[in-house]
């Protein structure tokens, strides 16, 4: 690693944030506020270069005046500061919410229902090339049905449904545990990455 002002800044700020492990302190708060400011500044510039310029100002410059509609719609947000016409701010919100809801219906249906159903269905091919893959597929099918039964509240969980629902809890608990473990390890991996950077930095420094 070559020591330069950028590396020094990165190392110092990493140490500032890690100082929070001892206790809240001015160095951590400085780094925290710097992060908020820089992230928002980044967002402004990226929004201009990747969203507003190519999708609004460039088309308007080419004479595509239909793009005046989203511009006017966007500007209506600012009417919320004028009490008399503040209701107009609902129009862009309604467009965003409606568009998002409309796009999400087929998207959710395709990705989260059809694709997942396709992956859960058990066929003779599930047992090929290895029988074990078929057994795991059977366990997955049982787990999915049991989990769904646990979340099915239209019938009281008694008798057979109660037993399947109990099996569902077992699958859910294993799932939560595995997700927790995986998330912790992802954070630990980030931490190892930062420590590796600091070690390389101090090795290069001294």
């Amino acid at each position: 690693m070559i020591i330069n002002p950028w590396n020094i800044a990165a190392a110092l700020l990493t140490l500032f944030i890690l100082s929070f492990l001892y206790k809240d302190n001015p160095l951590f708060r400085f780094a925290e506020h710097l992060y908020v400011g820089i992230s928002n500044g980044y967002l402004i510039a990226i929004t201009w270069h990747n969203a507003l310029r190519p999708n609004l100002f460039d088309p308007l410059g080419r004479g595509q005046y239909i793009f005046l509609i989203p511009m006017v719609l966007g500007l209506l947000y600012f009417t919320m500061f004028v009490k008399r016409i503040s209701w107009l701010a609902r129009l862009p919100i309604a467009f965003l919410i409606g568009w998002g809801a409309g796009v999400s219906i087929p998207a959710y249906f395709q990705a989260n229902i059809l694709k997942q159903l396709h992956g859960t269905i058990l066929t003779p091919q599930s047992f090929q090339p290895q029988v074990s893959s078929g057994i795991w597929a059977t366990i997955i099918l049982i787990g999915v049905v049991a989990t769904l039964t646990y979340f099915f509240f239209s019938t009281e969980h008694k008798g057979a449904i109660g037993r399947v629902s109990r099996l569902g809890i077992i699958f859910i608990m294993i799932g939560f545990g595995a997700s927790f473990g995986y998330t912790v390890m992802a954070r630990v991996s980030l931490f190892i990455g930062r420590l590796k950077f600091l070690i390389e930095f101090f090795r290069a420094l001294f």
Binding site: F109, I139, L141, G143, V144, I172, I174, G175, F176, A178
Partner: peptide, 17 residues
Amino acid sequence: LKVPNLAAQRGILFGIA
């Protein structure tokens, strides 16, 4: 991760969808 966890996540995913 690939068997019991997947089964639970899939069930939850159906509910979310």
